[in-house]
């Protein structure tokens, strides 16, 4: 039979990766946050489309999911850059010059905290403590922790990352 009315939630069909995540939790609404974590792990952020599909699958209002995704700082709604730079601005890192490190990265890469560079390579974010105050000021890049950072070593780390990437691309090309 021909459908007379278009469905109110007319979305693209969710892709298979998304489907497996929802199935993993047997589409239970109380597992919503776990699903969001898994989606973020898969796509590195929470794409708008996936939140819409999730709202459909679990029959939870979209605003509820959006509210949760904006409430927790660990969820990202924007696509992050290829490299994630996290600068600690906790008390210990703050007194040892954490803000100066953040400023230096901002200046060198022309990116504000919480934003991504125009070429989509680097994302900069600041956090309030990483729990390793003894080696402050701390910078985390793609899960790797760099301690006792200075404005000079920041430049070296960025240079090294660029070199590594060029090498990789050179091999691939």
């Amino acid at each position: 039979m021909k459908k007379l009315l278009p469905s109110a939630n007319n979305h693209k069909p969710p892709n298979s990766k998304f489907k497996t995540i929802v199935d993993r939790y047997s589409a239970k609404r109380e597992k919503l946050i776990s699903m969001l974590h898994d989606i973020q792990e898969e796509f590195r952020y929470l794409p708008e489309e996936s939140l819409r599909s999730l709202s459909n699958e679990l029959s939870v209002p979209l605003i509820k999911i959006y509210g949760i995704a904006t409430f927790y700082k660990s969820f990202r709604l924007k696509r992050p850059g290829r490299h994630m730079l996290t600068v600690c601005l906790g008390t210990a890192c703050h007194v040892r010059g954490g803000p100066r490190i953040a400023d230096e990265i901002s200046r060198v890469l022309d990116v504000k905290p919480g934003e991504t560079t125009k070429d989509g390579e680097y994302s900069l974010e600041t956090v309030n403590c990483l729990g390793c105050c003894a080696i402050g000021p701390v910078l985390v890049m793609d899960g790797k922790i760099f301690g006792q950072i200075t404005t000079k070593s920041v430049k070296n780390i960025l240079k090294q990352t660029d070199k590594d990437r060029n090498k990789k691309e050179g091999v691939a090309g």
Partner: peptide, 25 residues
């Protein structure tokens, strides 16, 4: 309908629609 709700938290908390767009519902 459930078109609006609280987003963000702390001093940034506000009431809005999902993604700040007109809600479908």
């Amino acid at each position: 309908a459930g078109a609006i709700g609280f987003v963000n938290r702390g001093h940034k908390r506000k009431i809005t629609t999902p993604f700040n767009m007109k809600s479908e519902v």
